[in-house]
Simulated assay, not measured.
Amino acid sequence: MDTHGDAPADPIDYRFSLANERTFLAWIRTALGLLAGGVAVQALAEQFSTPEFRRALAASCTALAVVLATVARSRWLRVEATMRCGDQLPDSVLVPMLAFGVSVIALAAGVAVVVS
Rank of each mutant, 00 (worst) to 15 (best):
S116V: 12
R73D: 03
A36D: 15
A106Y: 07
A112H: 03
Q88F: 08
G86D: 13
V104W: 05
H4K: 05
L98R: 00
F53R: 15
D6C: 07
V104L: 02
G33L: 14
A81S: 02
T50F: 06
I105V: 13
G37F: 08
M97G: 02
A99D: 05
A45D: 08
T30I: 06
R73S: 02
S116M: 05
A99M: 01
T70V: 00
D91M: 02
L32S: 03
R55S: 14
E21G: 01
R54G: 01
Q42I: 00
R55C: 13
T62V: 13
D2V: 05
T62Q: 10
R29V: 05
V115G: 10
V95H: 01
L44D: 15
F48G: 12
A9L: 03
T3M: 09
A109K: 09
R73I: 01
T50W: 02
V115F: 11
D13E: 12
Q42F: 07
R15P: 10
A7H: 13
V93P: 04
D6E: 13
E21R: 00
G38T: 02
D2L: 01
D6Q: 14
V79K: 00
S103V: 00
D13C: 14
V41D: 10
M1A: 11
A40F: 14
V67H: 11
V104F: 05
F16C: 07
R84G: 04
R75K: 09
L98M: 07
G38R: 10
R84I: 01
V104E: 15
G5E: 01
A72E: 02
V79I: 08
A43K: 14
D10I: 00
V111A: 15
V104G: 01
A19E: 15
M83H: 05
A65Q: 03
M83Q: 15
D13N: 13
L35Y: 13
A56P: 03
W27D: 07
F24C: 07
T23W: 03
D13H: 14
S103I: 06
G101E: 12
E21Q: 14
A63V: 11
A81C: 04
L25R: 13
G101V: 14
L32P: 00
Q47K: 09
R78V: 09
W76Q: 00
E80N: 12
T3Y: 09
A63H: 07
P90S: 02
A31V: 06
S17N: 03
G33K: 10
N20Q: 08
A7N: 13
D91G: 06
V113D: 05
D10W: 09
M83Y: 11
